[in-house]
């Protein structure tokens, strides 16, 4: 059973994402901010993390920066964000994100991407 971690400060979006992915054979965990996410990441392994960029206190970028490098290598990270400029994408990718989906996003698209990631088995 794959484990997914969804990190977004908006409850509605968390619901949306988890509902979108519910048909997949995965176990979903939610985190409402960066700190909670980091705690959860320390406690267990996830096969994918969906990470929002704009969050209070700890932004998505900061979360990325605080992750250990090897963790980033083996866990694919999908960034969701309203910031969709080229530069922001580059920054995120450099920081360790593997995928990038701008908001507003199409849930179906998200689903597709997640499926692909999981099929690949994380690169």
């Amino acid at each position: 059973m794959r484990k997914l971690l969804i990190v977004d400060d908006e409850e509605i979006l968390r619901m949306l994402i988890s509902d979108t992915l519910e048909d997949l054979d995965v176990h979903i965990e939610l985190a409402e901010d960066g700190k909670v996410a980091l705690d959860k990441l320390q406690q267990s392994e996830y096969d994918l993390m969906i990470l929002d960029y704009m969050m209070p206190q700890l932004t998505g970028m900061e979360v990325l920066e605080r992750l250990p490098v090897d963790l980033k290598k083996r866990m694919p990270i999908l960034m969701l964000t309203a910031k969709a400029q080229e530069a922001d994408r580059m920054k995120a990718l450099e920081a360790g994100a593997s995928y990038f989906i701008p908001k507003p996003f199409s849930p179906l698209e998200l689903l597709q991407v997640v499926e692909e990631i999981l099929v690949d088995g994380g690169e």
């Binding site: 908006e10 949306l16 309203a82 908001k103 507003p104 996003f105």
Partner: peptide, 19 residues
């Protein structure tokens, strides 16, 4: 940003409903 969030959810849920 503030606009995008509710918009995402509206679009998202609508898509889900349709899908």
């Amino acid at each position: 940003h503030e606009l995008r969030t509710p918009l995402s959810s509206v679009l998202g849920f609508t898509e889900l409903l349709l899908s």
